[in-house]
Amino acid sequence: MDAFHPDTPPEAIEPSPRPPRAWKFWGTTVWGFVIFGAMFLGQAAVIVYYVLLQGGPLTAEGIIRVVGDGLTISLSVLAGLPMVLLVLWIATRPTGITFADYLGLRGTSWRNVIIGIVSLVVLVTLWDLVSRAAGREVTPGFMGDVLKSAQADGALWILVIAFAVAAPVWEELFARGWLYRGWSESFLGPYGAIALSSIVWTGMHLQYDWFFLCEVLSIGLLFGYLRFRTGSTWLTILLHALNNLAATIQTWWLAG
């Protein structure tokens, strides 16, 4: 009856807040291009800076010469991390889900960590055995040149931080965090998301030949499965970091 009395209007009905909702296939895909583009711009800015710093022309030849330098590669990898984090933060805001929850930044059990490490060691060892049996290099040849260049510049420690910390963090947040989360809640489902995100992640390593790309794909599938089973991107970041650190030490050792 209060509606008939102007002095006592009915209480305003507040609309219920929109429930949290992850981006689906196309939203995840479009934002994925934006995230990758931001990473590329961050890395390219470092390369262009060093080309201009050395007084060389901003040409393909000048860029290729600078890209082969260990210090430049390390700094470009480091520069990509804040760019990726910034765009990921922007992309997760409209979903109503926290940054950590959306990207799977949650802990896991020691049992899962041990299972992940053992699985990764077995997988990489099998690839090394196949590589040796085929008379191939165990590590990509260009990695040895990059390590020697970084060591000559006194920047070996920067390269280790870039390859064993920065790269695993932003690559996993992108592939197993962002891409897997959205695609797994689309028509692809978890297994389709594991496969497609692994293919995209492999495509980000085109500096390798077909053999090492196959190895990268298999590692991506393992990481994707572990992300699915444990719900933890921290686990895949840890495994990725350990893999990159071991590969860096192995390459440094073989390169003398």
Rank of each mutant, 00 (worst) to 15 (best):
L52E: 12
I249T: 15
V122E: 08
Q151H: 10
K148Y: 02
V67G: 00
I35N: 03
A167W: 03
A164Q: 11
W210F: 13
R181M: 01
F25R: 10
L226T: 09
V200K: 04
W183V: 05
L173S: 00
N243S: 09
L52P: 02
P15I: 04
D69K: 01
S109D: 14
T230S: 08
G27M: 05
G37Y: 08
D209L: 02
G256S: 15
Y49Q: 06
E11Q: 15
V138A: 02
T230R: 08
F4I: 15
A44Q: 14
L156V: 09
A91G: 03
L235G: 02
W23L: 13
G144P: 00
I73K: 09
R227V: 03
A167D: 00
G189P: 06
T251N: 01
L147V: 15
G116Y: 08
A246Q: 13
T125E: 02
T230Y: 06
P10I: 05
N243T: 12
T92N: 07
W252A: 15
V46A: 04
L235F: 03
L126A: 07
G116A: 12
L52W: 12
G256I: 11
P82W: 12
W23K: 01
N112C: 02
L156Y: 06
W127C: 00
A22K: 15
H205D: 09
W23Y: 14
T108L: 08
R176V: 03
G68H: 13
Y50G: 00
F33T: 14
L86T: 12
W89K: 11
S74H: 04
W110I: 12
W170R: 02
G80F: 05
D145F: 05
E137K: 09
I194D: 09
S218V: 01
A164E: 07
V30N: 01
F40E: 12
P17L: 10
I90H: 12
Y102S: 04
A152C: 04
L85P: 04
Q207A: 11
V48C: 07
R65Y: 03
A241F: 04
A246W: 14
A255E: 14
E14L: 14
P10E: 15
W183A: 00
S149P: 07
A241V: 08
S76C: 06
G96S: 14
D69W: 07
G256C: 06
L105I: 08
G62Q: 01
Q54L: 10
L179K: 00
V77W: 06
A166Y: 06
P19M: 05
I199H: 06
E137Q: 13
G116P: 10
A79T: 14
A166H: 09
S149D: 08
V165C: 10
L179E: 02
P82K: 10
L41G: 14
G62M: 09
E172D: 04
L221A: 01
L53R: 15
I47R: 01
P10D: 10
I117W: 12
T8G: 00
